[in-house]
């Protein structure tokens, strides 16, 4: 990117002096533009994260059984507890399995719909685009309430199905949640992939058509490789979202007894914080944030290498 403070097409002397005169004003403008975000980012991103790390290194001590509690430095005591906590690791394993199944299905569907929207095969594209995207306007809590009713054997309009299959049982409830998440986010991901399909110059297809390529070949050989960056973007956000699952399982708890208070990592954080055991909850949070960060980072790096090859 060329910097605008250096005028590209004005090499003559007056421009140089003007630049010197205005650079102070520009520096002041940059400060004005950046300061509000910087202050808020520090106060509500950076400081809380640092504070959570500090809290996770503390531990509560009492003098005797009934003495007043006070916080003392406990080193990695909380982290020892985190690593010894099987329920927490079960919840991590649960969301990883969830992500390994749900994210590919959701993105596969999103890609299929985007390719169909981009193909000459469909009529009423605008309608489909809006209909598929509409669930994105439904917040996770509301979506979980709606599907909770639809799943309940006693309330569902699809009694024939729900009286035979208990979607809210211990075996199936994870996949019942996967369905809710898929329902909400397929359309959103479809639109991101579709927008990047629209950005491909049509001349490329014309050339392929002249060479006798079919629609499927064009989709497979040209379109999909060109939208890989968009798919990676949606995959990273989906992975992050999966590890952070909270609203849907927490809401479904009033429909299903199969969801424990540590069903997902964030539910474990919330439950621990309500005890209240802030130090342990902070340690859970830090571990979860690091895991999320590491996973999306590794995913980004590994896919980048593949794309450049």
């Amino acid at each position: 990117m060329t910097a605008t403070s250096i005028p590209p097409a004005a090499p003559e002397a007056p421009a140089a002096t003007r630049k010197n005169r205005s650079s102070g004003a520009q520096r002041r403008a940059v400060a004005i533009f950046i300061a509000p975000f910087a202050v808020l980012f520090l106060a509500f991103y950076a400081v809380p994260i640092v504070f959570a790390v500090v809290q996770s290194l503390l531990t509560v001590e009492r003098e005797g059984t009934f003495g007043p509690p006070r916080q003392v430095f406990g080193g990695l005591t909380q982290y020892e507890q985190v690593f010894a906590n099987t329920e927490f690791w079960q919840s991590v394993g649960r969301v990883l399995v969830f992500g390994a199944v749900q994210v590919p299905i959701m993105l596969g569907l999103a890609l299929l719909f985007a390719l169909l929207l981009d193909s000459p095969l469909l009529k009423g594209k605008k309608f489909f685009r809006l209909a598929f995207f509409a669930p994105y306007a439904v917040p996770g809590v509301i979506a979980a309430i709606m599907w909770g009713f639809l799943y309940s054997p006693s309330l569902s309009p699809f009694e024939a199905v729900t009286s035979n299959i208990d979607f809210l049982s211990a075996e199936l409830v994870l996949w019942a949640i996967a369905n809710i998440v898929t329902w909400v986010y397929v359309g959103y991901n479809m639109l991101i992939i579709y927008s990047s399909l629209l950005a491909i110059p049509t001349e490329i297809y014309e050339a392929a058509r002249l060479d006798g390529a079919s629609n499927i070949q064009i989709a497979w050989r040209i379109k999909i490789p060109l939208v890989i960056p968009a798919i990676i973007l949606t995959a990273v956000f989906s992975i992050i979202g999966t590890l952070q699952l909270l609203a849907e399982p927490q809401t479904l708890r009033s429909f299903s007894s199969a969801i424990s208070s540590s069903f997902t990592p964030n539910l474990a954080v919330y439950t621990t914080a309500s005890v209240p055991n802030y130090n342990l909850a902070a340690a859970f949070s830090v571990v979860l944030a690091l895991a999320t960060f590491a996973l999306s980072f590794v995913f980004l790096k590994s896919t980048q290498r593949k794309v450049t090859q």
């Binding site: 809380p48 979202g241 944030a289």
Partner: peptide, 11 residues
């Protein structure tokens, strides 16, 4: 890359 939910407890 830091999701809103990860910040809730620190906040």
């Amino acid at each position: 890359l830091v999701p809103a939910t990860a910040l809730a407890l620190p906040l």
